[in-house]
């Protein structure tokens, strides 16, 4: 726990990087502390996190088209 704190403006600027797990250890800690005490920023972070998660599942369960499957199978045979 650090006594250093960040304001909402700073937290909002870093939300994308926080959600992307790209903040450095110190910045991450400050962000976590802020999110524990600020409902507004926490709600915003949750929204961004869920939207990213939804985008990330776009290709989930997608099945390749038959023409591509056939094309790749015959390509693999040719190797």
């Amino acid at each position: 726990m650090t006594k250093e704190q960040i304001a909402c403006e700073e937290a909002l600027r870093q939300i994308v990087e926080y959600v992307d797990h790209e903040l450095g250890a110190h910045e991450h800690l400050l962000m976590e502390q802020h999110l524990r005490t600020c409902k507004s920023c926490f709600s915003r972070m949750e929204f961004e996190r869920r939207l990213k998660e939804k985008t990330g599942t776009l290709c989930e369960d997608e099945v390749a088209s038959s023409p591509l499957s056939e094309r790749i199978k015959s390509l693999l045979k040719s190797f």
């Binding site: 776009l58 290709c59 989930e60 369960d61 997608e62 099945v63 390749a64 088209s65 023409p67 591509l68 499957s69 094309r71 790749i72 199978k73 693999l76």
Partner: peptide, 24 residues
Amino acid sequence: QVLGLLGCLQGVARRLTRNDADAE
């Protein structure tokens, strides 16, 4: 591995190219 990932590879390729033929 290729055949297991084919649906996902095609999905990403389609979103990158925005065109089915180019994606294939």
